[in-house]
Design a protein around this nucleic acid. Structure first.
Lengths: 235, 235
DNA sequence: AGCCTAGGTGTACGTTGTATACCTGTCAAC
DNA sequence: GTTGACAGGTATACAACGTACACCTAGGCT
């Protein structure tokens, strides 16, 4: 009958991989598993994807497509801001994506397209090529090595139920990491463990800090040329 | 004779792994390979390391030890700055480390110690616990997904030798990614490919931007409390 | 002398990515 | 309508991985 099994295509492979990652985490995205999801033998995937790296790259491209259109014709700042927040909301929807993106070494057309749009927003906003360049880098840098997730994962430092053990642990932390405790106590009220902080707030806090700084440099006619090695900021 | 083979220890395992990663990249750090490097059978490692994750964590701890001491008794800003730049120079010396650090989910004592010191520098510099908390987050955030390496890897977008092909490629880029080209042409002079930019400059540019912003907020007596949802900056 | 135990060994299993060779159904050209 | 090419699915195989489990062995204690 007409029930010929749906042909596999690159797109179907990528979508299967993405929804598998969404459902069961990136670790369960193996060639074999994705193939199984499509009711097909592992090696069949290689007709549509050149290797696993290509698969991962394709998954990211799919997410970039989810970012949506660049908002038209507002001021540069809200344009950049909404664009970046849209991107973030996609990455939040697909928690595996951040780690994958950061390991990617090949620039696909989708990535370059996003990069191009972003660059355009700055240039159109009256930023010099020079400042635009550095601003883009600043948005990409993580100043320390540690990713924020490392500190927010609630499972990473379990707090004992038992009040005695709990007091003992707090005492230990007070002795060993007093400054951490100070900050933790503040942001959690009096509950050390409950201090799950508002990641969205942290994110836009950082974003606004940088956008403000960019704007200030632009208005001051900043340029990196005269003396590259010195501090970028007049004090 | 006295030539009993040197006993394996946790420290020796970790050091072997680090120098292997330095020499041949993180991908060649497998349990089998590290064991071979020590002239020992793979399973022997498990007497000193609980699993591969523990091994990677231990490697990072070793690097954190390389960060050195917190500079004593200067103003907060140079203290933070030199501390972060010291950390960076370690990560530059061990190019595999950044990626490994970012996948770590468990906070070892070394990591917590570093975090604690860093926090202390802010608190001692007159920052509120509130602002310190957000500043630490800001230093940890990467605003976009893409890591800077993704754009600087010279192999990622090979430029043809042949002048004709080269011109054709530039034409293609001009049509497809005009804004990228604008910025690239600026920062490379007239050489599109040569535009390897000064990563150290980019890094301290970003760092100073953030430190400036923190200082400004501190001096303004900023607090996140009154209205958490709104912009952190008075305009 | 006897034993405990920390540390090294050997074997084995399941899972991974992918090379290579093969088969098969569809469609264009004659 | 037969043929042949070729895109797409299959089968088998291999090397490398992390690590569970059982075993052996050499020192240092009582």
């Amino acid at each position: 009958m007409a029930e010929t099994r749906l042909r596999v295509s690159r797109d179907r492979v990528l979508r299967a991989a993405v929804s598998l990652a969404d459902a069961e985490g990136i670790d369960s995205v193996s060639m074999r598993r994705v193939a199984a999801e499509l009711g097909v033998v592992p090696m069949a995937l290689y007709k549509h994807v050149s290797d696993k790296d290509d698969l991962l790259g394709g998954m990211i491209d799919l997410l970039i497509a989810e970012y949506g259109e660049t908002p038209a014709a507002t001021d540069w700042r809200t344009a950049v801001r909404t664009r970046i927040l849209a991107a973030r909301s996609v990455l939040v929807r697909h928690p595996w994506a951040r780690a994958v993106i950061e390991t990617r070494r090949t620039r696909t057309a989708a990535v370059l397209g996003y990069l191009n749009e972003m660059t355009g927003l700055f240039l159109d906003g009256g930023f010099s090529a020079d400042l635009t360049h550095h601003a883009m880098h600043a948005l990409g840098h993580r100043v320390w090595g540690f990713s924020p997730e490392a500190f927010d994962d609630p499972d990473a430092l379990p707090v004992p139920e038992d009040p005695d053990e709990r007091a003992q642990m707090i005492e230990y932390v007070r002795a060993t990491y007093p400054h951490i405790l100070t900050v933790a106590l503040y942001s959690a009220g009096d509950d050390v463990a409950g201090g799950r902080c508002d990641e969205d707030f942290e994110f836009s806090f950082t974003l606004d800090l940088l956008l403000d700084a960019f704007e200030r440099l632009r208005d001051a006619g900043w340029s990196s040329r005269p003396q590259r090695a010195s501090s970028p900021l007049r004090r």
